[in-house]
């Protein structure tokens, strides 16, 4: 059970003045149950890549396999793929359209052919999963706060019971409180449901705490792929492509340069504090 991306290339508006080679020979395998952070700045190809994974964009060249099956194969049920690989777009609150929250979340399951009753059951379950209580079921989605709207939108995809959940910049435009709440909720969801989660972001600092694998994209190519610690070791190259490792990575590095005997692999504030405390207590 996995998503396998093989030699995928994608070119926008081929043959016009605006031609862009958005993906260049991308190879990836995302295993079941992984929590992946996909990092890159605007134009790095990350958004294009995830739209390939559920078949919204068709690769110009290359193959994609979902659970071993070629999704470009004849008679491959693309609609089913879209429910299995749930994709939540950036600013998802702009897609809400129904008169109440519950109806909006029902939209997905009903499209999959579930009866009203089943759809509502799934919708309710999904809403509780994202932390939206029953009291909001009948409210208009337009009267909710920014963070709440975003939860409802995520529930809208979750209600289709996907095996893989992809979130494109789920924290864009949210304030720090909203950002932390959404990320905590996603991480809770990941634990509860055990589904595969791909978190797309341009902020290393935000996702490093949550994910167990980081994929860094630059100019349509995969630059780094590994655990956060492994990836952050390349802090210099990361800075060159306009992405920063967490601030503490640079802190530990400066300390080391000053001759301090510290573990430079710390990626979170707690780890850094531990490492520095250990160094300070050390007897020469």
């Amino acid at each position: 059970m996995s998503i396998k991306v093989k030699n995928v290339n994608y070119t926008y508006s081929e043959g016009t003045a605006y031609e862009i080679h958005a993906l260049k020979d991308v190879n990836l395998e995302i295993l079941d149950g992984q929590f992946v952070g996909l990092i890159g700045h605007t134009g790095s190809g990350k958004s294009t890549l995830i739209q390939h994974l559920n078949g919204l964009i068709r690769a110009t060249e290359g193959k994609i396999y979902f659970n071993g099956r070629d999704i470009y194969g004849e008679k491959y049920p693309l609609k089913e793929l879209r429910s299995k690989v749930g994709l939540v777009f950036q600013y998802p609150e702009y897609q809400l359209f129904e008169t109440d929250v519950l109806k909006d979340v029902c939209f997905g399951p009903k499209n999959l052919g579930y009866s009203q009753e089943e759809a509502e059951k799934k919708a309710k379950e999904a809403l509780r999963m994202v932390g939206m209580g029953e009291e909001y079921d009948q409210s208009s989605p337009f009267e909710l706060s920014g963070g709440q709207k975003r939860r409802v939108a995520i529930a809208g995809v979750l209600a289709m019971e996907p095996e893989v959940l992809i979130l494109d910049e789920p924290t864009a435009g949210l304030d720090p409180r909203g950002r932390d709440e959404i990320l905590d909720q996603i991480s809770y969801l990941k634990r509860e449901r055990g589904i595969t989660v791909i978190l797309v972001s341009h902020s290393m600092e935000d996702v490093a705490r949550y994910v167990d694998r980081l994929i860094v994209m630059n100019q349509g190519q995969v630059r780094f792929d590994g655990t956060p610690r492994e990836v952050f070791r390349h802090y210099q190259e990361l800075r060159e492509i306009g992405l920063d490792a967490p601030q503490v990575t640079y802190l530990m590095k400066s300390l080391k340069e000053k001759g301090a005997h510290v573990d430079v692999d710390a990626t979170t504030v707690e780890e850094a504090a531990d490492a520095i405390a250990a160094w300070l207590k050390e007897r020469e």
Binding site: L56, L87, F89, F107, M160
Partner: peptide, 28 residues
């Protein structure tokens, strides 16, 4: 695309179904 990711179908069906399918697109 976002609504297609939720299983919306803008292409098949008769005229009335197609018109109905436009609501999730036009409202937002």
């Amino acid at each position: 695309k976002a609504q297609m990711a939720r299983g919306a179908d803008f292409e098949s069906g008769n005229l009335i179904q197609k018109a109905k399918a436009m609501v999730p697109l036009l409202a937002p």
